[in-house]
Nucleic acid binder design. Structure first.
Length: 292
DNA sequence: GCGTCCAGGTCTACC
DNA sequence: GGTAGACCTGGACGC
């Protein structure tokens, strides 16, 4: 028997623009049905049970269908608000791009909310999986993590593994089963630190630290360098880093530098005037064609 | 079929 | 603080 919940959305919210804001919708346990624009995912409720859900837009509201009718909706609604960023205030960002014709589409399409996972732990592991490899390999590593270490929901779909589950396997498991290569010892160390309570990535969401300090804290995690930390900062709502990776650089070269390679400092100068919003501005500037 | 390059980079050693 | 070299994987490409 299905269980259904509805959530109201802000006036400047777009389900499509948010879900398709970056590659996260392609990473397990997310599954995106682009025909019907339905996002499947697997949450964990407050009792740590895996809960499979389908999220979609219906009559200007977000509808969540759960396969299990016994689930307490409170945590599922909270996590859905988090991953769709329903409580983010985009006014400062929209003000920062006013007068820039090239970016007019952003407000028109109500873009600017970057999809995230249900918690920061999951975003942290996934971000490490994006480093120094093709997008195909990222998807493969994340899919392996979910399939081999995730807990199943009632319908058999699996949740992203907990830190405890990831701490329970060896470096060899990450190399042989997850195909994580040199990242394997990083995952072991990270999972042990989070499972033991030594590190709590969720606190980054509400940290009072200035962004440079928070970035330093993130970079203490092995496998997290400048790009990964700045990507994570975007996912906790801080956009003063550009999170330059090879894809973003190549798009900048195409769009603003006649397809010629240039130093990162030139890219930084280009977005300098957007201040604290520059990380979100460059991302939107490079992804206009993604969203229609 | 084989070798090389390179992806949504980072770490360590060294200067 | 800046830089060189090493690092897993797997697909694309040239030969």
């Amino acid at each position: 028997m299905k269980h259904t919940a509805f959530i109201g959305v802000p006036a400047d919210f777009s389900f499509r623009s948010t879900v398709y804001s970056h590659g996260w919708c392609e990473l397990a346990p997310f599954e995106l049905d682009v025909e019907d624009w339905r996002l499947s995912c697997v949450f964990r409720d407050d009792d740590n049970n895996a809960v499979s859900a389908v999220i979609f837009e219906e009559n200007d509201r977000i509808r969540i269908d759960l396969a299990n009718s016994k689930v307490d909706l409170t945590s599922i609604i909270r996590d859905t608000r988090h991953l769709l960023r329903l409580d983010d205030d985009l006014n400062e960002f929209y003000r920062s791009i006013e007068g820039h014709d090239r970016l007019r589409w952003v407000r028109e399409r109500r873009a600017g909310r970057l999809l995230r996972s249900a918690n920061v732990w999951e975003d942290l592991v996934k971000t490490i999986c994006t480093t120094n490899c093709s997008w195909g390999l990222t998807k493969s590593m994340v899919s392996n993590l979910v399939e081999k270490l995730g807990a199943p929901a009632d319908n058999g779909k699996k949740a992203f593994p907990t830190a405890e589950a990831m701490a329970s396997v060896s470096e060899k498991f990450y190399r042989d089963e997850i195909r994580a290569g040199y990242r394997s010892p990083y995952f072991v160390e990270l999972a042990e630190n989070v499972a033991s309570g030594k590190l709590d990535p969720q606190k980054w969401l509400t940290s009072d630290l200035p962004t440079p300090e928070l970035k330093k804290e993130m970079k203490r995690v092995k496998g997290v360098g400048d790009y990964a930390a700045e990507n994570l900062l975007k996912l906790v709502g801080r956009y003063d880093g550009l999170a330059l990776d090879s894809w973003l650089r190549s798009q900048f070269y195409k769009n603003h530098n006649k397809d010629k390679v240039c130093p990162d400092k030139k890219i930084e100068r280009h977005y300098k005037d957007f201040g604290k919003c520059r990380g979100l501005v460059i991302w939107c500037d490079m992804t206009e064609k993604w969203i229609n």
